[in-house]
Amino acid sequence: MSEELSFTLDGRRVPFQDGQTIMTAALAAGFYIPHLCFNPEFTPHGSCRVCLVKINGRMQASCTTPAAAGQTVLSEIEEVREMRRGILQMLFVEGNHVCPACEKSGACQLQAVAYYAGMLAPHYTHFYPRRPVDASHPDALIDFNRCILCELCVRASRDVDGKNVFAVQGRGIKAHLVVNTPSGKLGATDFNITDKAAQVCPTGTILRKHSGYEIPIGQRLYDRKPINVVGDVAALAVSKGGRRHD
């Protein structure tokens, strides 16, 4: 048998196959690395930078860096955690995130990753952008205040649903999510609540109407257990029979 390819993540051996990234290999082996714009079902995007790890001494995004034999990857060291917290804090102050008033609280990846990373406060000065809510669609609501520009909905709508409902417009800090219609309203599109794009938002931006708080806050997915245990890593790790890192 040929020698198995592997690298180490915080000292633990992670096997991988050619073509895998640090992120996909780690998840497949049951090891969690925080991520937001990465979703195992989509090609990596590399924009949120929450998945930064130290690879052979250099900080790099684990979702876009190909795994290579013998790499030394460090994720849970203070230097990386501090960087990660800083980036999460940036995401929080860029939008308007009022967790106690958000339907997604407890099931929100942004919130769950922030808890996991030990972020206690937003630290930076809030931008308080003005972003109107779009309630024009009969079954879905978009609260742009919570958008982190991960473009998962953009990718899902374009690549899975074949509809191209969403896009990002503007540059720099003015970059923002738009709905691809002249009116900019979701109600004017063929968006459907069963679309993939309606299921992928890691925050409380794209919400389902008519069914709020079915599971009470406090009993939701990430309320019960941290994201490194119950997030997408769990689904994958179980299917591969891998170990979880907690």
Binding site: G46, S47, C48, R49, V50, G86, I87, M90, L91, V93, E94, Y124, T125, F127, I148, L149, V168, G170, R171, G172, I173, K174, A175
Partner: peptide
Amino acid sequence: VHESCGFCTPCRVGTSL
């Protein structure tokens, strides 16, 4: 702030901060 393309968090938000 003006020239950031806005794709990634550290540059998009960091330049303004």
